[in-house]
């Protein structure tokens, strides 16, 4: 089975799946992952924009509030988390938009593979290219906000964990609004209320690390939220995509 697969992955993943229903899913997942990664790497500005937005928003706060390092340090955990959350939100609209416009989303629906899994692959790519970079960038911005030492690792880790949930939940909103011409503002109305638990425990983790309490409990809850979104969100995304495509 594996032999015939490796022969054909270089070609079209879908024709393989039709011939080999058993190994088809893995091939289809890999093809979706690779294709989306490649597409996003070509449109580099789409990957960079949320990061620039994140840095910009963080720059606004000392200007708008006060450059006092002590004040900034107290609000830094919340600020970093809110700004990262908004940056992740900003990138959601393009999650399915390109595929919807060129018709490849319709093709995705026609494949014999389970749509929730394919949607999961797409969301994974989205997280790899927005959530993860945001998490890696956050400590640098933390320095600029005089975030107390000792909480940097927790900041990056909580953001990496949390943005995965954010991508999953956000993808539901993106899938519901992809067929609408003016879905951009609507998506934030749909998605932001659902982001609140992640924000509470994400910012709470960093806060706990700053104070010196262990952040383990918060991170565990963030992990639980991620597990729950992993279980439920792909199905909701798939159902929403079907609604948006089939009209």
């Amino acid at each position: 089975m594996a032999g015939s697969e490796t022969q054909l992955t270089s070609g079209d993943g879908r024709s393989v799946s039709r011939r080999e229903p058993g190994g088809g899913l893995a091939v289809a997942l890999w093809a979706t992952l690779r294709r989306d990664l490649l597409l996003l790497m070509r449109r580099r500005s789409e990957v960079l924009n949320p990061l620039v937005f994140f840095a910009l928003v963080i720059t606004l706060f000392p200007i708008g509030i006060s450059p006092d390092p002590q004040l900034l340090a107290t609000i830094a955990p919340g600020l970093l988390w809110v700004a990262a959350l908004l940056a992740a939100l900003l990138s959601l609209d393009s999650l399915f938009r390109g595929d919807y416009d060129d018709g490849s989303l319709e093709q995705l629906l026609l494949t014999p593979q389970p749509l929730p899994m394919l949607a999961l692959a797409k969301v994974t790519v989205h997280w790899l290219l927005t959530g993860l970079p945001l998490a890696l960038m956050a400590p640098v911005l933390g320095i600029m906000l005089s975030l107390p030492a000792g909480s940097y690792l927790v900041l990056a880790f909580s953001l990496a964990l949390g943005t995965a949930s954010l991508s999953l939940i956000g993808a539901i909103g993106a899938a519901l609004t992809v067929g609408l011409s003016r879905g951009g503002v609507l998506i934030s109305l749909l998605v932001l209320p659902l982001y609140i638990p992640v924000l509470i425990f994400g910012a709470g983790a960093v806060q706990a690390a700053v104070v010196g309490d262990g952040a383990a409990a918060h991170l565990a809850i963030l992990g639980a939220l991620l597990a729950l979104s992993l279980m439920l969100a792909p199905w909701a995304i798939a159902a929403s995509l079907r609604i948006s495509i089939n009209g």
């Binding site: 539901i172 519901l176 159902a239 929403s240 609604i243």
Partner: peptide, 10 residues
């Protein structure tokens, strides 16, 4: 029909 199904999912 889309509106109904989308609102139901949400």
């Amino acid at each position: 029909d889309s509106a109904s199904r989308a609102a139901s999912v949400l």
